[in-house]
Design a binder for these strands. Sequence first.
DNA 1: TCAAAAGTGTTTTTTATACACCCATGC
DNA 2: GCATGGGTGTATAAAAAACACTTTTGA
Lengths: 228, 228
Amino acid sequence: MQQPYHLKAKHLVAIDDTVFGYENNELKLLLFKRNLEPAKGQWSLVGGWVDPDESCEDASCRVLTSITGLKNIFMEQVKVFSKPDRDPGGRVISVVFYALIDIQKHNHQLSDQFGAQWWPATKLPKLIFDHQEMVNCALNNLQIKASRDLVGRDLLPEEFTLTQLRQLYNSIFMKEFDPGNFRKKILSLNTLQRLDKKSKNGSKKGAYFYKFKDDKEELEFKERIVNI
Amino acid sequence: MQQPYHLKAKHLVAIDDTVFGYENNELKLLLFKRNLEPAKGQWSLVGGWVDPDESCEDASCRVLTSITGLKNIFMEQVKVFSKPDRDPGGRVISVVFYALIDIQKHNHQLSDQFGAQWWPATKLPKLIFDHQEMVNCALNNLQIKASRDLVGRDLLPEEFTLTQLRQLYNSIFMKEFDPGNFRKKILSLNTLQRLDKKSKNGSKKGAYFYKFKDDKEELEFKERIVNI
DNA sequence: TCAAAAGTGTTTTTTATACACCCATGC
DNA sequence: GCATGGGTGTATAAAAAACACTTTTGA
């Protein structure tokens, strides 16, 4: 079973990023018009090759930064897709990540230039190869993440209302959370700080803006936020 | 960003299996004495190379079968480990799986012959490279799995008592579950079938044997078994 | 004035936890 | 008879869900 390294087959290894953003009360996904064969012109996830001197995480960061202009993007591994025939263009092992970014902050010129486009997560075009399955897995991971950590930090603007946060959660879990119960749950976590400003966008009365407390990077003991 | 496939670097891709078993009320791990440099003679997970015509899952199955003699082993992906310097012997990207097997059923001659040995999960020797981190991730995945699915099917013998199942859960979660509450929870899932036999091993009174219902492969709507 | 979101409070239901207690039996 | 794990039931606590109600203000 164990043989010298140099005798073994080598593989092309790629990363594919499921990039989530949030805009107009909708969870969105950044998709690419593929510019090489096979399946040129069709929609796909953002991807790239893994270089000899970098980890898959490094490769994913590099690709994300090159497309959005952002650094320190939140990102987590999802799964490896490695069926020998998954890519008709050749045998490619792909490591999938999901990333969360603030649509407002990213460099639109840059992503436009790459032929990238934001799509509502619920209304995606047909994707190449196994990319739809990748998206499904990524969304699943995002839900697991959001069930234990408040994910708004990466998707919402600095300052946001609890209604905005709830609508984000609605779109991640594709269900309606009770406004009163959601509010109580979130505030009990003690990770948000209320500001002395009010948003007049959502209602006539106006809703307080909140922001994430700087210190509270991680909850010491992860309480469940939503049940899945 | 996107270039023809043939211009890109290729990588050695391996799989490493965290093989869990259960024996004498202990969760155990199958470890290998490594028989090639570097780190020859040290303990490691069971591993193997990914061949050109197989998926990582295929490679993992192949390796597991070659060592245990068993087929259709339960197995799930854990994570990819890909730091460029993680293996001093060369740049190897490793896809980690965890597997659950019935220690009684596997072929001992075969695993002995490979230099494999079962270790209590709580008392592992020092492992090579990043294998301890792999084990930690795998155990974490096993806990997540066991919190939603009854995992005894793969780790326990066909027929087992509820006390055995509880002790398995105790060792997976490294805590003591209340006997009465655990029993009620498990029976409420309706996935076990009581047999008309009693085990006299654990107690004087004797405890009913149970087995997994054949039909209930999957619960339609996954209820939580334990909270994590 | 009234519709609509913001925000607070209460009730009900469900689930988890703690633990009391009887049972059967080998010693 | 008594210690021991098996098995059942009950009381309590905590969490989730449902929903009533008050506030504010632009249209």
